[in-house]
């Protein structure tokens, strides 16, 4: 469902537009709608989520009605229609991973981060959610972090703690860089 709680206007950079044009060329003349999913991934990777203005701009770029973009963005689980934490941790919650302790990892994340599934921590750094089978069932429990979908396998509670600490450090490092 698309309910607009936040919006954010965006500008597509030259780099992005170059990439868009390259993507559209993959399909036959007049079939530019095929570029929709790849473009939404590009936009989300850049801005962290898909605001209505961002979707409208994609529609305009591909000569589609905005509704064609909304109906796609709402169908697929990878597209975020509201802001997430800077690091959105996605744990596989499907059967095979549960056989090897996925539920324990989710409980641990909830306690460690102090937010429920789908919520964002006060500092804006983290959010988490359960997702369905990630085709890595032999290496469970597993977790992924967009936009590049970096993958972490054979998770333990300690491993999750370490990861969170590392991500915190990374964010602080980036902040220091930006401030100096």
């Amino acid at each position: 469902m698309l309910s607009v709680k936040h919006n954010e206007s965006v500008t597509f950079t030259e780099d992005m537009l170059g990439k868009f044009a390259e993507i559209v060329r993959r399909y036959p003349e007049g079939r530019q709608k095929s570029a929709l999913l790849p473009l939404l991934h590009e936009v989300q990777a850049e801005f962290g989520w898909l605001s209505v203005s961002a979707m409208d701009k994609v529609a305009e770029y591909l000569h589609l009605d905005p509704i064609e973009v909304y109906e796609v963005a709402t169908f697929y689980t990878m597209f975020f229609l509201q802001p997430k934490g800077r690091f959105n941790l996605e744990v596989c919650r499907t059967g095979p991973c549960c056989l090897v302790g996925a539920e324990r990892i989710m409980t641990h994340l909830e306690e460690k981060l102090g937010v429920k599934e789908g919520e964002v921590t006060a500092d804006g750094l983290f959010s988490w959610r359960g997702v369905e089978c990630l085709a890595a069932c032999g290496y469970g429990p597993v977790l992924q972090i967009g936009p590049e979908y970096t993958f972490y396998e054979n998770l333990t509670a300690e491993g999750v703690d370490e990861l969170i600490n590392e991500l915190r450090k990374k964010a602080e490092g980036a902040k220091l860089d930006a401030d100096s």
């Binding site: 993959r26 999913l37 790849p38 991934h41 796609v72 169908f75 697929y76 597209f79």
Partner: peptide
């Protein structure tokens, strides 16, 4: 032959 990779969006 031209070959392209297309990403899905998260849907079984």
């Amino acid at each position: 032959l031209e070959l392209f990779v297309q990403p899905g969006g998260g849907a079984y």
